[in-house]
Every structure is written in C-alpha cells, then in structure tokens.
C-alpha cells in the first residue's frame, strides 16, 4: 500500500447521494481474478452509453475535462451496498487517493482504508462549501494533522480516523503484516479456546 501523508489537488465533484458500489463498479467487472485495470471501469454505466467508450455521457463529471484531481468529493452515504472491494480498487486505479463525503458506508470505508484510499468525513455544511468551489480550486489533505483545507479561503475542518489506520496509511503498512507478526498470540488464543471448551 502506498503511503499517504499530504495531498494538494483540484477535485472532482459528484454531488449525488447514496452512490452505491454497483454504480462505482458494476457486477459484470467482478469476474476478474486480479486487481489490475479497474480504473477504466470506474462508474462505467454512468460514464458511457451502452457500455461503449466511444459514447461518453457528456453530463457525467468524469467526461468533463475541466474537472481533474486526486480527490473525489461525493454526496452522503458514499459506497453503500455490496462489500465489493473492487470499488476501492477502481477508484485507486483511476487515480483517486482520497474521497470526501459527509457520510460513508462502513464496509466501503474499510475497503478504502485497506487500499490506501483515504475516506474523509466532513460536516454537511463543509461539504456544501467545497461543492461551491470552482474547478481550479485546490483542497489540501493533511493526514498527520487530520485536516482538510479549502486552499482558496483557508477554511478547514478536522476529520476523524482511528490511530491504527492512520499509522498504517502514513507509513504504507499492511494489516496482514501485522496479523502475521502476532501469529503466536493467535495460536495461544486457539489453545485457550479449546481448553475452555473442555472444562
């Protein structure tokens, strides 16, 4: 997982609520057996008419070249629905390192954190302020300080993130490395479980 400390970038606005994981990555793309190449299928059916790359839907933001950036800003309850981690892979592969919303669905939030895509939860009021910014406006994410700043005005908000996940993201650490490092504790737990069942 790539480490994330600070990002300053223009953002892509998606002021739609309840964006579910079927929209982020439709089921037909889950037939893959690797993690590669998901970016081109991000929001596939909102991006293209009839699944045809030669027919981009002009009113969808990813087809509007004035909006670019490593940060996606979305309406509340982003990532609801399926547990498909492919949603996080497609955002990352497309180039988003951060998603900002006023509310994230649980499983998606976890999947994003596990893949180095930082989900930032801000208040609804701050979210609306961001949506009012122009396409040249940049946002700065500072993970160490847990702040998101609208650079043009200096307005910022603190976001929550659990200490462990923050450390992992800042350093690019992997949960599996951690779990493998405590294998002895896990085996001891199993023995203790078996013993307590035999009492």
């Amino acid at each position: 997982m790539k480490a994330l400390t600070t990002i300053t970038s223009t953002f892509v606005p998606l002021p739609i609520e309840n964006v579910d994981t079927d929209q982020i990555i439709p089921a037909r793309f889950l037939k893959a057996t690797t993690k590669d190449g998901f970016g081109k299928n991000l929001f596939r059916d909102w991006r293209y008419l009839n699944d045809d790359e030669k027919q981009p839907k002009k009113d969808f933001v990813l087809n509007q070249p004035q909006y670019r950036g490593e940060i996606l800003v979305a309406g509340k309850n982003f990532g609801c629905g399926s547990s498909r981690e492919h949603a996080a892979w497609s955002l990352l592969d497309y180039g988003f390192r951060c998603v900002v919303s006023s509310f994230f669905a649980d499983i998606f939030k976890n999947n994003a954190l596990n893949n180095g895509v930082l989900p930032i939860t801000v208040s609804d009021a701050f979210l609306q302020k961001i949506f009012q910014q122009g396409n040249q406006s940049t946002l700065t994410v500072n993970l160490q300080q847990q702040t998101l700043t609208i650079d043009a005005t200096g307005e910022n908000e603190r976001f929550d993130i659990n200490d462990y996940k923050k450390t992992c993201m800042l350093n690019g650490y992997d949960d599996i490395d951690y779990l493998l490092s405590i294998k002895d504790d896990i085996e001891a737990f199993e023995i203790q479980q078996t013993q307590s069942l035999q009492l």
Binding site: G81, S82, S83, R84, E85, H86, A88, I107, N110, N111, N114, N115, D175, I176, L179, L180, I182, K183, I186, E190
Partner: peptide, 30 residues
C-alpha cells in the same frame, strides 16, 4: 466476502461481510 453474510446472524452469530483484503487476512491468520 459478501455483504449478505449478515444472514447467518439469524442463528445468534456475529456474521458480517468483508472485502477481498480482509479475506486474505483471514486466510493468513484466521
């Protein structure tokens, strides 16, 4: 690795869906 894992909760179990990275975690460490 499926969000409808919650189904099994009907038996009085803690059952929940996980992403593929977590599937790997469970493979590695249970």
């Amino acid at each position: 690795g499926d969000s409808h894992t919650s189904t099994h909760g009907a038996f009085g179990a803690i059952a929940f869906g996980i992403g593929t990275s977590e599937v790997e975690m469970v493979f590695a460490s249970q």
